[in-house]
């Protein structure tokens, strides 16, 4: 039963991905002829333009030529060549992806842990000062734009109290004597962007966990567990939290997918060489092949994260198996 369920979910994910690939092709055709930006180069001759078009395969018919080429190339992970760096788009993405995963992974993990922990605290102290304080704090970080938080962090911890680097993923031009010092250097660079990321995500996790806990705590089984003589803190940790975690798991998995693309502003501010910064530069340079590639990766991230959330839910909530 569970195998069939998983196969169904995986098949749905593949269908979604195929749709994204097709949509991605037409999205960039609608934007117009990419060679038009080269016509801004003075003195370009029509022959040169025609050569450019045939180089990019833009002279072929749309469906039978360009689309077929595109599907074939995408299937073999050939996402084209960046117009700016002249490197393969796939290589650009492969270089940037680990940095984004590191930043987003650390940020999501910290935000989930801290947010849900604070949510539990607030829900069990509902209506008291600590609850109101936490609610105010989390609404503030939720509402504040992440780039503003990033700038404030740079201002305070890199400028006024210069203890942390203001940007980049590691100190440039340094030969590291060992991998330990290299990791330490990266970790130092990671602190500020990861903090900004955590603060950006924290509020949602806190609010979801708090309201989920408040709901669960009014359930009958909580009263029954208390009636069995179980101390309150164990009622909370063993029965309330596992039930309240369910909506949070979905949110955090889906968020992880979405945030891979959403780290654009934070990565730009901290010059973090991840997918976000790659996207930002590609937009500035009208680098269509790169944009097409990162869009595909972002979508694949969201689809994969959703699949992961389904699997986690399946594992955490026995009721899912029955349906």
């Amino acid at each position: 039963m569970s195998g069939r369920w998983l196969a169904g979910k995986a098949a749905a994910a593949v269908v979604t991905l195929v749709f994204v690939i097709v949509f991605n092709f037409f999205l960039f055709r609608v934007m117009g002829d990419p060679t038009t930006q080269f016509t801004r180069i003075p003195n370009i001759t029509p022959t040169e333009l025609a050569d450019l078009r045939s180089d990019y395969g833009l002279d072929k018919p749309l469906l039978t030529g360009q689309f077929v080429d595109y599907i074939g190339d995408t299937a073999s992970f050939d996402l084209g060549t960046s117009q700016r760096s002249r490197r393969a788009v796939w290589t650009e993405i492969k270089d940037a992806l680990p940095w984004t995963l590191l930043l987003v992974g650390v940020g999501t993990l910290l935000a989930t842990l801290i947010g849900s922990w604070l949510g539990v605290i607030a829900a069990t102290r509902r209506g008291r000062n600590s609850d109101n304080g936490l609610l105010g704090f989390s609404l503030f970080t939720y509402a504040a734009p992440e780039y503003w938080i990033g700038i404030i962090l740079i201002l305070v911890f890199a400028f006024w109290i210069p203890i942390l680097p203001a940007g980049l993923q590691m100190t440039p031009g340094v030969e590291f004597s060992s991998w330990v010092s290299e990791v330490t250097d990266v970790a130092e660079h990671l602190i500020l962007p990861a903090t900004a990321m955590t603060l950006m995500l924290l509020g949602q996790y806190f609010l979801i966990m708090r309201s989920s806990m408040v709901d669960v705590l009014t359930e009958d089984f909580i009263t029954v567990k208390r009636a069995t003589g179980l101390p309150w803190d164990r009622v909370v940790s063993r029965h309330a939290v596992p039930n309240a975690l369910l909506p949070l798991v979905t949110l955090s998995a889906i968020q992880f997918g979405a945030v891979v693309g959403g780290a654009i502003t934070i990565e730009t501010i901290f010059s973090w060489p991840g997918l976000g910064e790659l996207t930002f530069q590609a937009i500035n340079d009208k680098d269509f092949p790169v944009l097409q590639g990162v869009f595909l990766v972002f979508s694949a991230g969201v689809i994969f994260a959703n699949l992961l959330a389904d699997c986690l839910y399946f594992y955490l909530d026995p009721r899912v198996k029955a349906d």
């Binding site: 359930e219 009958d220 089984f221 009263t223 029954v224 567990k225 009636a227 069995t228 029965h239 596992p242 039930n243 369910l246 955490l316 909530d317 026995p318 009721r319």
Partner: peptide
């Protein structure tokens, strides 16, 4: 003293 609650539906932890 033990308690049998109304609404047997929600008297047990659903995930245990």
């Amino acid at each position: 003293i033990s308690l049998v609650f109304q609404g047997a539906m929600n008297s047990l932890d659903p995930v245990q």
